[in-house]
């Protein structure tokens, strides 16, 4: 296991040799290079670290799910967490906004710093934390209420009462999630009438409405058809200007398409982390290479 800095430093010199070896991955990178919007290792290094984790262990009862995970999530970047099922990437994601608190008999050790403050320190206001660290789930889970009420829920529970302010937030959030044009004339219809892809974008809008700093996404497109997936991916790409995003995905093409930095988890360990285009072309670890080339997982 490597610390991110060393992983980044040692990579460039091995680049040519590795990309010559692994054809399928190079194809992915080619599209990335064309789009030319993914951040390079150097650019990522320049970003301040929004979330820093140090030696995070996580237990479900006696079963350890994470082992000494130390990962930095740079600001205004998309960090993809990849790895086979059960590798701990979702567990890790859910540590960042303490959603794991909802599961009984879990233990966290180590430090998770958001803007330098440990989110697991005594006296942390979890409610406040979750307003700053929003989350989008794998299965779209709109409330059985109107589209408007879904988006307005976050601000409402935060105490926003004024109708005109709520209206403003709802419109802004729906615009950000590229849903406004589709729903603006039926804001008061049930959210459950929307299609799966629209529901997921509504969930993203709902998460944006609380104006979070960080957006966590747990396989946000895995239940969607390719067209909706593309819409959600475009959205994620656009959102990183204003938010810091961490996304769990099973789809490596997706990780390659949307993320700046990729972290590979395996059996609870963070195996490798680095700039996406470098990790995919020139993985440092054998396990990473096997996984991204499809030899297992």
């Amino acid at each position: 296991m490597l610390l991110p800095e060393t992983a980044l430093d040692s990579r460039p010199e091995r680049m040519s040799e590795a990309s010559a070896r692994k054809t399928p991955v190079r194809m992915t990178t080619a599209t990335l290079d064309q789009s030319n919007v993914s951040r390079s290792a150097a650019e990522i290094a320049e970003q301040s670290k929004k979330v820093v984790t140090r030696d995070v262990d996580f237990f479900y009862g006696a079963k350890q799910a994470l082992y000494k995970v130390s990962l930095d999530v740079p600001e205004h970047c998309v960090t993809a967490l990849i790895g086979p099922s059960g590798c701990g990437k979702s567990t890790f994601l859910r540590c960042l906004n303490r959603m794991n608190d909802m599961i009984d008999d879990t233990t966290v050790r180590g430090e998770i710093l958001l803007d330098g403050k440990n989110v697991y320190r005594r006296g942390t206001d979890v409610v406040e934390l979750r307003k700053r660290v929003g989350m989008v789930f794998q299965k779209s889970n709109p409330f059985p209420k109107s589209i408007y009420e879904n988006v307005a829920y976050g601000p409402r529970v935060a105490g926003v009462r004024k109708r005109n302010i709520l209206d403003e937030i709802v419109e802004k959030s729906l615009r950000q999630s590229a849903l406004w044009d589709e729903v603006q004339d039926r804001l008061y219809d049930s959210a459950l009438q929307l299609s799966g892809g629209q529901q997921q974008r509504l969930c993203i809008a709902r998460a944006l409405a609380t104006n979070p700093d960080v957006l966590l996404m747990d396989e946000p497109a895995s239940a969607l058809d390719p067209k909706s997936t593309a819409a959600v991916e475009d959205l994620i790409f656009g959102l990183k200007k204003s938010y810091t995003i961490a996304i769990v995905t099973h789809n490596m093409q997706q990780a390659a398409r949307v993320s700046d930095q990729t972290a590979f988890f395996y059996e609870g360990h963070l195996i490798e982390v680095g700039a996406t285009n470098e990790l995919f072309t020139n993985p440092y670890e054998k396990q990473t290479e096997d996984y991204i080339t499809g030899r297992f997982g």
């Binding site: 406040e128 307003k131 529970v157 935060a158 709902r206 609380t210």
Partner: peptide, 19 residues
């Protein structure tokens, strides 16, 4: 999923129960 969505949006327990 409804509970999770509500808590993830920064709702308190009481707000989640009530709303």
């Amino acid at each position: 999923t409804i509970r999770q969505a509500s808590y993830a949006l920064g709702a308190t327990r009481w707000q989640t129960v009530w709303h």
